[in-house]
Amino acid sequence: MIGRLFPRTLLLGTRGYTTRTARRELPPVPNTFPLLAFAATAAVGSWGAFTVYATNKEKLSSSIFKSILAQVKSSASVHSLLSSTPVLKRELWLGGVPHVKGAVNMMQGRVDLSFKITTDKEDDQATVYFTSIRAHKHAPFEIIRFLVVSDKGSVSLLDQGLSTIDDEGDIV
């Protein structure tokens, strides 16, 4: 009688104590793999997006990029190619910040950048390519490529007498 009312009670039997337990099925365990996979993918994706954004902002704030942009904006041949004042093309996927491809590695002596420019009215668009290297630590930078390419044609800014980068990152 006690065993029916309380299935987990100890009953005194002839051979000692015996235990009765009610047999129940274990509850089903939910599958957490999809949630874990989504969380891991979101974490890696957000880390990657932050890395792209941060390195792009670093390139935008470098002195060599600012010098390149000043040379492009002041060039009469770029003005005639685009028929207006060039400005950086802003990208929506970066939150309205221009996208700069390539790398700025002044310590190892390599600068290789490309970015898009457009006009104020955004009817013309061009891409600026800039490459500069130095042979060794104490050698000056040598500008290899400084080119503005659009659908209408291309303009080489090396023809303007630009040849090197000084210690502050300015093109001279």
Rank of each mutant, 00 (worst) to 15 (best):
S67A: 01
A40V: 09
P34L: 09
P27T: 09
T19Q: 07
T41S: 10
P28G: 12
P34N: 08
T14P: 04
R20G: 04
F38A: 15
T18C: 03
F50E: 11
L35M: 01
F65Y: 01
E25G: 04
P30I: 05
F38T: 15
S62T: 13
N31L: 06
A40N: 02
F50Q: 13
T21K: 05
K57F: 03
R15M: 03
V44K: 07
V52P: 02
S61Q: 14
T21S: 07
S63H: 12
L60R: 03
W47N: 07
S67R: 01
R23S: 10
I68N: 10
A54Q: 13
A40H: 02
A43L: 11
K59R: 10
N31M: 04
G16V: 08
L10S: 00
R23M: 11
P28W: 13
N56E: 06
T21M: 05
S67W: 00
V52T: 14
N31A: 05
R20A: 05
P28Y: 14
R24L: 02
G45H: 11
V52W: 14
I64V: 15
N56A: 07
E58I: 02
G16H: 07
F33I: 12
P27D: 08
R23A: 12
A42Y: 10
A22V: 03
G16L: 08
A39I: 05
S67H: 00
K59V: 02
K57E: 14
T21V: 08
Q71F: 00
L11A: 03
A54Y: 10
E58Q: 14
E58A: 13
Y17V: 15
V44P: 04
T19K: 09
V72T: 03
E58P: 01
A39F: 05
S46A: 11
K59D: 02
T51Q: 15
P27A: 09
W47M: 10
A37Y: 09
E25I: 04
L10F: 00
L69R: 00
T32K: 11
S61H: 12
G16C: 08
F33Y: 10
A22R: 04
A54K: 12
T32E: 14
L12P: 14
G16R: 07
Q71D: 04
V44D: 06
T21Y: 06
L69N: 02
V44F: 11
L26V: 01
P34C: 08
E25P: 02
L10T: 01
K59W: 02
A43Q: 06
